[in-house]
Simulated assay, not measured.
Amino acid sequence: MAPPRDYRVLIPIDVLGGESVPRTIVDAFASVPVVLLGYREIPDQTGTDQARDQYAPRMRSELDDVQRTFEDAGCLDVSTRLVFTHDRLETFERVAVETDCDGVLLVNPAPVLESVLVAIRSDVNLEYIAQLLAALVADTDLEVTFFHVVSDEDDRDRGTELLDDATEELIEHGIDRDRVDTVLSVDGSPTREILDVASEYDLLVVGESRPSIRRFIFRDRAKKLARKTVDPVLVIRGEYLEVEDGDESTDPEDGGGDS
């Protein structure tokens, strides 16, 4: 088993757009370090300095309130960033890399948070996914279900083996077996099947298997998942991501502007 480490989650929040973090999410994620990214997506013709002058004080106040909520819930490591951007997706990706975040949480309403569906596409980063999950759910009562879709009956055994491996990885990292379940779907559209099954759970977790959060969340299968599910969606990054050449840095305290 890999040595324990701190796993960090990026939570983008459009605070001026009325987006908030449900209390159930706050309580569930209080066990891991989080980076709260208060962002404002602005038109191309609007300069970031102009937007900062207009919106920054109000955004900072709103973001500070969210930070205090996490701290009151017992989160010992919560930091914030404030950005104005012409491309929120690039910002999410870059800030996740810059702040060493292992996952990106897309916030949706979560009146109840008791069950987690983890959609597994392959064995890529399976141990890494299990480690982060274990860190997240260890101090909660959350139940975890691993889910996988295979194309036909010929792949059933392979799919079952993959789910068994995922279960064993999570157990190896300290989660009781009776909190872990598996579901295998045969001969279906992966996206449709995940959406159908996710409706029965409170949080959807997907693992990234491409070297880009932006492509995976918003231009691939998880784009559809994130937009069509009403649940919060946690995308666990691949460990191999690098900052792309030409990326600009953001002021970690207050207001770095993205352009």
Results as ranks from 00 to 15, higher is better:
Asp123Thr: 01
Val150Gln: 04
Ala51His: 04
Thr160Leu: 13
Val97Trp: 09
Asp139Gln: 04
Ile171Lys: 13
Asp155Phe: 10
Asp152His: 14
Ala96Thr: 03
Arg177Asp: 12
Asp154Phe: 11
Val205Met: 02
Val149Ser: 09
Asp87Asn: 11
Ala198Gln: 08
Val21Arg: 07
Asp65Arg: 11
Glu153Lys: 09
His173Ala: 11
Leu195Ser: 10
Val83His: 07
Pro190Asn: 05
Gly257Lys: 03
Glu193Met: 14
Arg219Leu: 11
Gly74Ala: 02
Ile25Met: 10
Tyr7Leu: 00
Thr167Leu: 03
Asp152Ser: 15
Tyr55Ile: 03
Glu114Gln: 10
Ala2Gln: 15
Arg227Ile: 01
Val243Phe: 05
Gln45Ser: 15
Leu126Ser: 09
Gly246Trp: 08
Ala110His: 05
Gly238Ser: 13
Leu136His: 06
Ile129Phe: 10
Leu89Asp: 12
Ser189Trp: 08
Glu90Arg: 01
Ala119Leu: 03
Glu98Phe: 14
Glu242Ala: 10
Asp6Arg: 01
Cys101Arg: 02
Tyr55Asn: 00
Phe70Cys: 03
Glu172Thr: 12
Asp165Trp: 02
His173Tyr: 13
Gly103Glu: 07
Ile171Pro: 00
Arg219His: 08
Ala73Lys: 01
Ser151Pro: 08
Asp6Pro: 00
Ile25Leu: 15
Ile171Leu: 03
Arg156Leu: 08
Cys75His: 06
Leu163Thr: 09
Leu105Thr: 02
Leu117Ser: 02
Leu82Phe: 03
Arg40Ala: 06
Gln54Arg: 14
Arg81Tyr: 04
Glu193Thr: 15
Arg179Ile: 00
Val118Gly: 02
Pro3Asp: 06
Ala73Thr: 00
Val186Ala: 07
Phe218Ala: 10
Arg158Lys: 07
Val205Ala: 04
Gly246Pro: 00
Val183Asn: 07
Asp254Arg: 12
Arg40Met: 13
Glu41Met: 09
Leu36Met: 05
Pro12Ala: 03
Val21Ser: 03
Ile13Pro: 00
Arg210Met: 11
Asp44Arg: 09
Ile13Glu: 05
Glu143Lys: 15
Pro211Phe: 04
Glu62Trp: 00
Ser61Trp: 03
Gly238Gln: 12
Val144Gly: 09
Ser115Asn: 07
Gln54Phe: 08
Val112Gln: 13
Arg8Thr: 04
Arg158Met: 08
Phe70Lys: 07
Tyr55Val: 01
Ile194Arg: 02
Leu170Asp: 06
Ser185Trp: 14
Leu136Glu: 10
Met59His: 08
Ala28Thr: 03
Ser189Phe: 11
Ala28Arg: 00
Val243Gln: 02
Ala222Cys: 08
Ser151Leu: 03
Val116Arg: 05
Thr140Val: 01
Leu106Cys: 08
Asn108Cys: 15
Phe84His: 07
